[in-house]
Amino acid sequence: MFEYELSQTRSAELRAAAEHDRLVREALRVRRAARRTEAYEAARGEASAQGGTDARSHSRRPRRHRFARAA
């Protein structure tokens, strides 16, 4: 009977830890989204102040190659 209670306690601890981890991930996701939105709004404000429509590039391609070309 002791092993069963130990198993139940351990299971409850694991469930609580998993729930805590989910809450932490959700909080980080919300913070990142808020930061991204804030940066986007700031960039739009700069672009409209400069007369442009959008400060972000339409392409996600980097300007340069990530690695130097082999000789």
Rank of each mutant, 00 (worst) to 15 (best):
E13T: 04
Q50G: 03
R15E: 14
R22L: 09
A18G: 02
R25A: 15
S7G: 13
R63W: 03
Q50M: 09
M1V: 07
A39W: 06
T37D: 13
A49P: 00
A33S: 15
V24C: 09
H20P: 00
A18D: 11
V24K: 13
S57V: 01
A16L: 13
R15N: 13
Y40S: 07
G45W: 02
G45D: 11
R56Q: 09
P62Q: 01
R35I: 13
A39C: 10
M1P: 06
A12L: 14
A43I: 08
R25S: 13
V24M: 11
Q8C: 06
Y40G: 01
S57Q: 07
L23Y: 06
E13C: 05
F2E: 12
L14R: 12
R56H: 09
A27Q: 15
A55S: 11
A27R: 15
R44F: 05
R63C: 01
S59F: 01
A43K: 06
L6I: 07
A17N: 13
E41W: 08
R69Q: 02
A34S: 14
E41K: 10
L23G: 05
R22S: 05
A70Y: 05
G52D: 10
V30G: 01
F67E: 08
R22C: 04
E5G: 01
T53E: 09
A49C: 03
D54S: 07
A17G: 02
A33L: 15
R32D: 07
P62A: 02
E13A: 11
A47Y: 03
R36Q: 14
R44I: 08
L28V: 09
A18Y: 06
A70V: 06
A33G: 06
E19N: 11
G51P: 00
E46W: 05
R15W: 05
R29N: 11
R44W: 11
S48P: 00
A18P: 00
R25G: 05
A33P: 01
A33F: 10
V30H: 06
S7F: 08
L6S: 12
S48A: 12
R64V: 04
E38L: 13
R60T: 03
A47Q: 05
R61A: 09
R22D: 08
L28D: 10
A71W: 03
D21G: 00
S7M: 11
R60D: 06
E46L: 14
D54F: 01
H20K: 15
R29W: 08
R22W: 01
L14M: 13
A18L: 12
S57D: 10
R31A: 15
R60V: 02
R60N: 08
A18R: 12
D21K: 05
A12I: 12
H20G: 03
Q8W: 04
R31H: 09
A55E: 02
Y4G: 02
Q50A: 14
R15M: 11
E5D: 12
D54Q: 01
S59T: 11
A70N: 10
V30W: 01
R31N: 13
